[in-house]
Structures are given as structure tokens and as C-alpha cells.
Amino acid sequence: MDRKKLWLDWAVELQSLAQAGLYYGKDKFDRERYARIREIAAEILAFQGDMPLEKVKDLFCCETGYQTPKLATRAAVFQGERILLVQEPKGWALPGGWVDMDISVAENTVKEVREEAGLEVRADRLIALLDGERHHTTVYPWKVAIAFVLCTLVGGAFQENLETTASGWFPLDSMPPLDWEKTTREQLELCFRARAAVHWHTLLE
């Protein structure tokens, strides 16, 4: 096993245990110990992940309650045999992002397409709920689950925005350079298979 990945996994587990202890623990001395364990986990992540400690603490040490995975959405929108991609700073990707606290997965999917591509869509079907660690190399201090949602195009046109610089429709055999941290070739193939299937069984990891 990759030693660096092992250290990062240990740090994430320590943080999760410490966060639960801080939330449920009543003894003030135990809470001090849990807080220190959380700091050590952040120090490990900063050292092994080559990140500034203060940035890690901002991401890693601000949540309360029992730690659960972060949820993100990616929209699969088709026009004929082409799929919608948006241009991110590191390459092209399916429209998507973190799910906001006050809306549903379907609503978030529609919102992200509107914000990143200027298009109105209808969220129709859950293609897959994937474990981010199994498909992406990005290091996060938490578990990430990604919901891929098949959508129907309703209307609209690309609008300038703060997140993407362009949008386009691409066939599977002619993809632009992808942002592998957000969308992989395997995930695009999955979306095309889901669209073509008469009866699609949601892929659950």
C-alpha cells in the first residue's frame, strides 16, 4: 500500500473519531484530549499532503456532530449522441458540485447546470452513487459520495460565470482534455450506457 495514502487514511479516521468525541463527550478533560487528537490529525494531513496547516484546520476542524460523507452531484445532459461538458480551469467536466444544505440532490443537479452552463434541465434518474476515493486521486479530509444524475435538456444557453469558461457537446469518441479530478472517461462511459438502457439499474458503491 502507498505509505502516504495510509497516513492520510489514518488522519481522516482520527479526525472522525475526535469529532464524534467532541460532539458526544461530556467530560471537559476528555474533550480536551479529543481536541488535541483532532489537531494531531490535521498536522498529519498537512505534513503528508503538503498543505498549509491553517488551510487544513479550516477544512478539517470546523465541523460538529457525527461526521458523514460529503455529497456532490454531476449532471449527464444529452443532445442527440453528445453529452454536455463545461470547461473548468484544469479541463472539461460534467456540470456539478457540492450539494447545498437547503436543497435536494435533484434540485442541486439542476442548479449546478444552470450556474455552470446556463441551461435549464430536468433531473430524471439517478445513474450512480459512487465513492469518490475509488475514482479520483484528489485528497480530501472526508469521504466523498458523488451522485450522477441523468437529465433532460429544457432550454437556455451558456452564460459567463465565475466557475466555467465555456460549455460544449461532445460524442464519446471525441472528448476534450478532461479534468480527471472531477470527471473521468469511465464515468462518461457510464452515463452513455445509462442513457441507452431501457431499464437502468442504479450503480451503488
Rank of each mutant, 00 (worst) to 15 (best):
A147H: 06
A117Y: 05
G21A: 10
F148D: 00
T184S: 15
R38V: 01
H136R: 06
C191A: 11
G155E: 07
R195Q: 11
Q67V: 06
L17T: 03
T137D: 11
L203S: 10
R33D: 05
V198K: 15
Q79A: 14
V121L: 04
T202H: 15
F78H: 07
D102V: 14
L188T: 05
W92N: 00
P52V: 08
G21L: 03
D30N: 05
G49F: 08
V144D: 01
V113E: 06
A41F: 03
Q15L: 07
I44N: 06
L71I: 12
F148G: 00
F47P: 00
L153W: 15
G97Q: 06
E205L: 13
W10T: 05
Q87M: 11
L178K: 09
R195P: 07
G25R: 04
T109F: 05
K57L: 09
D102Q: 15
A197F: 15
V77P: 00
T152Q: 13
R193W: 15
R122N: 11
A197T: 15
Q19F: 04
D30C: 05
P171Q: 11
N161M: 10
L172G: 02
D124C: 08
L17Y: 08
L59Q: 13
Q159C: 06
E181G: 05
G91C: 04
L130Q: 05
A76Y: 02
W7A: 05
K26A: 06
E181S: 13
L119H: 09
F148K: 02
D9P: 03
S167C: 11
G118N: 10
P69Q: 11
D27G: 07
F47S: 10
S174T: 03
A46E: 08
S104G: 14
G155Y: 07
L204W: 15
